[in-house]
Design a protein around this nucleic acid. Structure first.
Length: 288
DNA sequence: CATATGTCCTGAGAGC
DNA sequence: TGCTCTCAGGACATAT
């Protein structure tokens, strides 16, 4: 499940495409239901064809391809927004199977010659925006919170602090803060010793500081490890290699194991807002 | 406005 | 062994 570290790893892996020109936009034949493509394949094709890839950006869990008209660098930049959601991934090279290949861009004049988007479950989406105005209207700060790694401590506390929701649930709200998903939310709460059910408005200033530091540490470390590849093996980097952070998980998917802090307790699995949460009842108490 | 819930999707794994 | 069922959690539509 690609969260911020996985999508950032994908973004970095696509660097060899920068500077190339898109020479074909292909919708592969695929036996399963088609993914959501807006505003449809014809406009996706015409909007990307013969455009030069200026670069790749990331906003939360979304990956953004910037494309400029080949001979008009001053013209508006089109943006292809790729949302991997649960099982989507990008690759320069190879994908787990042909059956769930969703998009292929052929590219000339760069170090790599194609971009593949693969998504087994098909919850991922592709969206094309013709210019910055339409892009910001759909994915700007009015709709989506600041990226978790571009957010100051003061903003972090301002955005989440007054909520009565459980902190674990609030961390997943992309309208407030973009990039944190179910896996890393549990991890950063364990690092900062905060019980996942604590109401945001009950957290102390010291806990906000610890949580903020833990968020940065967990996300940055996970990026260094190139993300987490879970037991289903779905997530891969752009070279079709597994990530390494799954071996560093402290609590996620480790119910029943001993807490990595010694003499602490056994990790519990609970459900919050229909999502699994993992924590240690020994070192993550409800009261500060 | 804030918060909660239902929905989509596929395949792995459990249980019989 | 082969069938049915549950579950995983991204984002968003809809309800309260």
């Amino acid at each position: 499940m690609p969260e911020l570290p996985e999508v950032e790893t994908m973004r970095r892996g696509l660097a060899p495409l920068v500077g190339g020109v898109i020479t074909a936009v292909e919708k592969p034949r695929c036996g399963c239901r088609p993914i959501s493509v807006r505003p449809g394949w014809p406009r996706l094709k015409s909007g990307l064809l013969r455009r030069r890839i200026r670069g790749f950006e990331r906003r939360g869990k979304r990956l953004i391809l910037l494309a400029e008209p080949e001979d008009q660098p001053a013209a508006p930049l089109a943006r292809l927004v790729i949302e991997p959601r649960m099982t989507g991934l990008v690759s320069l090279d190879d994908v787990p199977d042909r059956q769930h290949l969703r998009l292929r861009l052929a590219v000339q004049g760069a170090k790599a010659d194609q971009l593949l988007f693969w998504d087994r479950r098909g919850l991922g989406t592709l969206r094309l925006f013709a210019d910055e105005v339409t892009f910001e209207a759909a994915l700007g700060r009015q709709r989506i919170g600041p990226d978790a790694l571009e957010c100051s401590l003061a903003d972090f506390r301002e955005l989440l602090g007054s909520s009565r929701r459980a902190i674990k649930v609030a961390l997943l709200d992309q309208a407030k803060l973009a990039g944190v998903g179910n896996l890393y939310a549990s991890e950063m709460l364990h690092v900062s010793r905060i019980h996942p059910a604590t109401a945001c408005c009950e957290l102390t200033a010291g806990q906000w500081r610890k949580l903020y530091a833990a968020m940065r540490d967990v996300l940055e470390t996970a990026i260094r490890y190139e993300g987490s590849t879970l037991s289903d093996g779905t997530y891969r980097n752009a070279l079709n290699q597994a990530g390494g952070y799954q071996n560093q998980h402290r609590v996620y998917d480790r119910a029943g194991e001993n807490c990595p802090r010694r003499n602490c307790g056994q990790i519990l699995r609970i459900v919050q807002a229909q999502r699994a949460t993992f924590y240690c009842p020994g070192c993550q108490k409800l009261r500060a």
